[in-house]
Structure formats: structure tokens, C-alpha cells
Nucleic acid binder design. Structure first.
Length: 675
DNA sequence: ACAAATACTATTTTT
DNA sequence: TAGTATTTGT
């Protein structure tokens, strides 16, 4: 037998159109030029991690790799999109053909393609966590665990128990014992509930987020499928590897082709998804998974000023677990980050708004600024202020558009068209009808399982004068939707015609919700068919406020408000970190558990390292509560940093804005030249 | 069997 | 404070 000699891909001395050497530092270049085989890139905050991935994609394609055979796994689909956009602009359109997205998205594609191997039909529906919780609630009342059982865990707790056990690959017993020991006396019921939950999902052809990963793992157990899947990957690239869990690490191993061409990129100091089962130690274990892993470290920070970096390092120093980060910058020291103490929440909002005005007068565009916070609700007060001042903003994090009750109601009508076995969606739309409650709905669903045409609801024989009319209306709508080949937007418009009166009766704030539904219809124009619409919305929900701002006011690109989690990987010239209080960050729930406090600390680190030029940390001294005012303390992570690290700012009377009513001229900036 | 009213409780981050 | 469990009324 002849022996083949391995040749490096680049051997024919390729002519690159991109000047990689001129554009990248030596560590980045090493990662971009890395030929084949496993590689681990440890990239500190702001060290050009994304840039490196983008140029690597371009470089691989220039070297002759087939774009469709490069797999780029990212944490959000937005990240994948942006990376491929940027790659296309440095190279060419071929980059858009790269396969990419989240683990969940890629898994769902595989499952659709190979559904028969795991005993599923192609039309399974993906349910989000609130749907999953509804299922658990349904099963719990079926099993009568709510009756006279004192303190049985509520649906969200049950969900996180089950999800944790899946994601951390532990038995339900171990999870409950270590994290929910107050419910240990219910363990048998919980286990039984978990079993019927699994069974329910199979029977009704739905999958939750965890199932997408688990079933893919099961799918790849089949050697034939594994071979096919592996063979279509030439290169596997994984971003944000520190936020993967054990299952995802295993999936990466399975996806990797025989050539061992896999590169993972991440930063163990930025691991902030432990609550979701992510294990930041995964990244350090990567070399154990792949023999001969090449390790590359990016340490030069290009983003932040020296002073901001000093604060960031000081934050990280407090961690119980030590990180051997040696981030450095060649940028100037810059201004000292500000520490702003306000009397209360309102003053904090007014301070931020005031600063926005000042920055605007200095010609800083709004989209160079971001407001970050720990919890979705920490920005409520500020949002009121911004609305009054007519400052356009988009908010990331917090409740998603597709999670709002009225949007889910409309969507459920589409779901039963795509998957008539989706009992959850049926239950949702049936109980919307006056006179139909859980009992009647479940009777109807029972009848459907043996019926040829489940949409002909009057044929069920379950009729009562109280809901006859409503049921007929629904039946007509569904038959209409099934019969005609509507586009998603046409279908939604039909559903709204039917649903709007229900919405008005159900919600006090219906005007706002009806407007949402109009926006929903507008969005749906972009989708090919019902199935895609439903699936994309579940896997990549549209941010709630992004929709509002999409309408109207496009003259100025909006300010960004974001939870710290949703700000990962992004950067702005000016960053405000508000509500920086002990009990908020670190969250009150984490104190007492060293590992959890460490994760909060990393979260703080992520927040600080988002800032390029200037960082403002603010906190209110008094919190107005229901039972009187509470004095609060600044976050322990920055308390006692001293004036050499953070400059305390004093708020004086003349800094205050005039009352809103008298502020019409503010935007025209008549006091501009006061400097 | 369903709907409305009342009492209670636990309170995050996201695919 | 809002979402949920329980009780009461139709």
C-alpha cells in the first residue's frame, strides 16, 4: 500500500488578498494562520477575539476551504450574523455561506434532517421555557400533587430542577439534594413528574431547549449518522466556549472531523452562565478532549483605557478562584472612571439623562453609549425618564417580545396548524374561549387524538350553549387557515381579526397589545412559512423594545439599555453601570455560596470591560420600598477602591435638569457654549 | 365546571 | 409587586 504524505494547506504559497500580517498582532495572527488540528484560544476581554474569528473565517476560505463546510457555533444568533457580515466585508460574499448559529439552532437543523433516527416526525415543535412550565403545571394538577401538599415547588422551580439535572448531567435526586434541599421530601413526586414530562413531550411532538441538545447527542450515537455529520465539517469554530456545558462540549467533540480541525475561543474570566449549567472549567479541560491541542493566548487589550483596565483587574483580583490574566494596553490612562452616589433611584435616572444630554452636546452619538444593569427591571425608572425626554433607546434583556402573553396567544393558532398534536397550543387557544376551562379543553384534546380532522371541532360532540358559538368561530378560522395557502403575514392578519376582540376583553392594557400585534404582523413578512416563523421565534426571540423603536424615529440611532448578560461581547465608548448595589450585584441570592459570588464577580468584570473611553458607576443611597425607605450599600466589588481608582463625583444643585414641562428646548441645546 | 375575588409568597441572569 | 394558589360565587 502506498503511503501518503501530509501536505499543509498553505504549501502552494497562497496569495492572500488580505494583509493579515499588517492587520493583526502576532498572537492573533497565529490563531488566524493556524493550519489544522485542535486549537484553544484564550482571549481576555477586548483582546480582539471576534476580530480573530472573523479573519480566521476569511483566511480559511481564501485557503480554499468550502464555506458551507465551516461550522461556526456562537452564543447568540445575532453574534453569528454579525460575524459573518463583517467577514463578508473583509473578504467577500462567500463568507455568508458559512454554517453557523447557536448550538440549539444547529441541533434543531440536524434533528429535522435526521428525525426518523430518533423516532420523531419532522413537524415537532420547539417550546420555550414558559411553555415548558405550563406543561409541568398541567401535569402537576393531573397528578394531583397540588392538593394539600404543603409547599410543593412551583412550576418555575420544577423547570429549573429538571433543566439543571439535564445540563449538569446529574440525577434529579442529586440536584434537589444539593440545590433545593427544602423540597427533598417531595423527591418521589418530582421524579414522577419529570418522567411524565418527558413522556408528554414525546407524545405531543414537542421539544424543549434541553431536548434539542440531548436528542442530538442520541442521534450522534448512531455511527452512520455520526459519520455523515462529521464528514460535512471541514472546520469547526466555537465562540464563547467558557459558557458551554458538558453536553455542548461533547457535541463539539462529536462534530469535529477526523482531521481534528477544531478551534474554540473563550475567556474563563467571563463565564457568566453557570446558572444555566455552563461549566467554565470546560475551557481548561479542552486539551484533555483533543490530543495535541495548540494553545494561543491573546493578552493585549485594544478596547479600554488604562484606568478602566486597572479597575477591571482590581475587580477580578477579588475572586476566590485565581485567573492568570495579564491584560495590558497601549492606550493612554484616560479619565478616571466615575463613582456617582445619588440620593435615590430618581436622582440616578436624572443624572444619567443629564449626562446623556451633555455627551450629546459634545457630539457623542447616542449609539456610542450604553446603560448596563444586573436585572431587567433595574432600568424601569430610567426608561420613564428617557420616554419623557424623548430619547430613543433599545433595551436588550428582560422580557422578550415573543414571550408576551398576547403574542403567544396568536402564535398558538399557527402552532396547531403546523403540528395538530401540539396539545399545549390547543389548550392555550381553547381556554381563550369564554366558557371553556381546563376541563373542557382537555376533553376536546382527548377527542382530537382519535380524529381525522381535528379542526372540525363541532364534530367532537362536546357541545354546550355557553361556548358553542366561540368554538364554532375558532373552528372556522382554523379550517380557513388550513385550507388556504396563506403567507405568515396573511395568516396572522386573519388570526388577529379573530383574536383582537378576545384580547380587548382579556387585558386592561389592550391598546398597547393591539399595537404589538400589528408590529408582529409586520415582522412576520420576513418569514418563509409557518414552521420557520414558529421555530425562529422560539430559538431567537425578538427583543421586546426593539420592535417599538423599529417603528418611527429613525433619525437618530438609539441608545442601548442592556442587562450585563445580554451585553456580552459588545463594547461602547461610554458605559454607565447603574444600580451598582450590594444585593443587586452580587445578587442577594448568591451570597453565602462562594462559587455563585465568584460568578457575580465575573459579571461585574464583564460590565466594566465593556467600556472603551469612560465608565460611570452609579448607585442610589436610599431605596424607597413598600415598608419605608431602606439605606443601601454600594456593591462589595467596588466598595473601598479609593479615589485613585474611582473618582467620586458630587452632584450639585445646578447639575439638575429643569422640570420636564419646561424642557422643550433641551434638545436644541441653547446652553451649549458654557465651557 | 368555570370565573372572579381574595390571600399569599417569593423576588436573576437566557438558549 | 406581580404572579400564583385558594376560596367563593354563578
Amino acid at each position: 500500500m502506498k503511503r501518503f504524505v501530509l501536505k499543509k494547506e498553505e504549501t502552494p504559497k497562497p496569495e492572500y488578498t488580505i494583509d493579515y500580517e499588517g492587520l493583526l498582532n502576532s498572537a492573533q495572527l497565529e490563531a488566524v494562520m493556524h493550519g489544522g488540528g485542535p486549537a484553544l484560544v484564550i482571549a481576555g476581554a477586548g483582546t480582539g477575539k471576534t476580530r480573530t474569528l472573523i479573519y480566521r473565517v476569511a483566511r480559511l476560505i481564501e485557503s480554499g476551504a468550502e464555506p458551507t463546510r465551516i461550522l461556526l457555533l456562537t452564543f447568540t444568533r445575532r453574534a453569528a450574523r454579525e460575524m459573518l457580515d463583517r467577514a463578508s466585508s473583509v473578504l467577500d460574499e462567500r463568507c455568508r455561506k458559512v454554517k453557523g448559529g447557536t448550538f440549539h439552532f444547529y441541533c434543531s437543523q440536524l434533528l429535522h434532517q435526521y428525525h426518523e433516527y430518533i423516532g420523531f416526525q419532522d413537524n415537532f415543535t420547539i417550546i420555550d421555557s414558559s411553555d415548558a412550565q405550563d406543561v409541568l403545571n398541567l401535569l402537576r394538577s393531573d397528578l394531583k400533587f397540588d392538593r394539600s401538599q404543603k409547599r410543593f415547588p412551583k412550576k418555575s422551580t420544577l423547570m429549573s430542577m429538571i433543566s439543571t439535572s439535564v445540563n449538569k448531567q446529574l440525577s434529579l435526586y442529586d440536584v434537589v439534594e444539593s440545590e433545593y434541599d427544602q423540597f427533598l421530601n417531595h423527591i418521589e413526586q418530582i421524579e414522577k413528574l419529570a418522567r411524565s414530562y418527558t413522556e408528554y413531550k414525546k407524545r405531543h411532538k414537542v421539544m424543549d431547549f434541553d431536548d434539542l441538545l440531548i436528542y442530538t447527542l442520541e442521534l450522534l450515537n448512531n455511527p452512520e449518522v455520526l459519520e455523515k455529520v462529521r464528514a460535512r465539517h471541514q472546520h469547526v469554530l466555537v465562540d464563547e466556549y467558557q459558557d458551554t456545558n458538558a453536553i455542548q462540549a461533547e457535541l463539539v467533540r462529536l462534530f469535529t472531523p477526523a482531521s481534528g480541525n477544531v478551534m474554540v475561543v473563550g475567556d474563563d474570566a467571563q463565564s457568566i452562565y453557570g446558572f444555566r449549567g455552563a461549566d467554565h472549567k470546560n475551557i481548561m479541560r479542552f486539551p484533555d478532549l483533543f490530543q495535541g491541542t495548540k494553545r494561543i493566548t491573546l493578552e493585549q487589550n485594544y478596547r479600554s483605557t488604562g484606568n478602566i483596565l486597572t479597575v477591571a483587574n482590581k475587580v477580578l483580583e477579588q475572586a476566590k478562584e485565581k485567573y492568570d490574566k495579564k491584560l495590558f494596553t497601549e492606550r493612554d490612562a484616560g479619565d478616571l472612571p466615575a463613582l456617582v452616589k445619588t440620593s435615590d433611584n430618581r436622582e440616578q435616572s436624572r443624572f444619567v439623562t443629564q449626562m446623556l444630554m451633555n455627551l450629546r452636546e459634545q457630539d457623542v452619538p447616542l449609539n456610542d453609549i450604553a446603560i448596563l444593569f444586573r436585572n431587567g427591571r433595574d432600568s424601569f425608572d430610567l426608561e420613564i425618564e428617557l420616554n419623557q425626554r424623548k430619547i430613543p433607546y433599545v433595551k436588550f434583556g428582560g422580557q422578550k417580545f415573543a414571550e408576551a402573553a398576547h403574542v403567544k396567544d396568536v402564535l398558538a393558532h399557527l402552532r396547531v396548524i403546523v403540528n395538530p398534536d401540539d396539545a399545549l397550543a390547543w389548550n392555550r387557544i381553547l381556554t381563550l374561549i369564554d366558557g371553556i376551562g381546563p376541563k373542557t379543553a382537555s376533553d376536546l384534546i382527548e377527542w382530537m387524538s382519535g380524529s381525522q380532522n381535528p379542526y372540525e371541532l363541532s364534530a367532537s360532540g362536546i357541545v354546550s350553549d355557553s361556548f358553542k358559538k366561540g368554538l364554532l368561530g375558532l373552528s372556522q378560522l382554523l379550517i380557513d387557515l388550513k385550507k388556504n395557502e396563506f403567507t405568515p403575514s396573511e395568516a396572522i392578519s386573519h388570526i388577529c381579526e379573530y383574536y383582537n376582540p378576545i384580547c380587548e376583553k382579556k387585558f386592561d392594557d389592550y391598546p398597547k397589545r393591539l399595537k404589538d400585534l400589528e408590529a408582529f404582523q409586520a415582522i412576520s413578512v420576513d418569514y418563509r412559512d409557518f414552521g420557520h416563523l414558529i421555530e425562529e421565534l422560539a430559538l431567537d426571540p425578538i427583543e421586546a423594545t426593539a420592535v417599538e423603536t423599529l417603528e418611527g424615529k429613525r433619525d437618530e440611532s438609539p441608545l442601548v439599555l442592556s442587562t450585563i448578560h445580554s451585553a456580552k461581547g459588545l463594547e461602547w465608548r461610554h458605559v454607565f453601570l447603574i444600580q451598582c448595589l450590594d444585593g443587586v450585584i452580587p445578587s442577594g441570592f448568591s451570597v453565602g455560596d462562594e462559587d455563585q459570588v465568584d460568578e457575580e464577580l465575573r459579571l461585574m468584570y464583564v460590565a466594566v470591560t465593556r467600556a472603551m473611553d469612560m465608565l460611570y458607576i452609579t448607585y442610589p443611597v436610599i431605596q424607597h420600598g413598600n415598608y419605608g425607605d431602606v439605606f443601601t450599600k454600594p456593591s462589595r466589588f467596588i466598595d473601598g477602591f479609593g479615589e485613585k481608582l474611582l473618582e467620586p463625583w458630587l452632584l450639585v444643585e445646578e447639575d439638575q435638569l429643569p422640570p420636564v414641562n419646561a424642557s422643550k428646548q433641551i434638545t436644541s441645546g441653547d446652553d451649549t457654549d458654557s465651557e
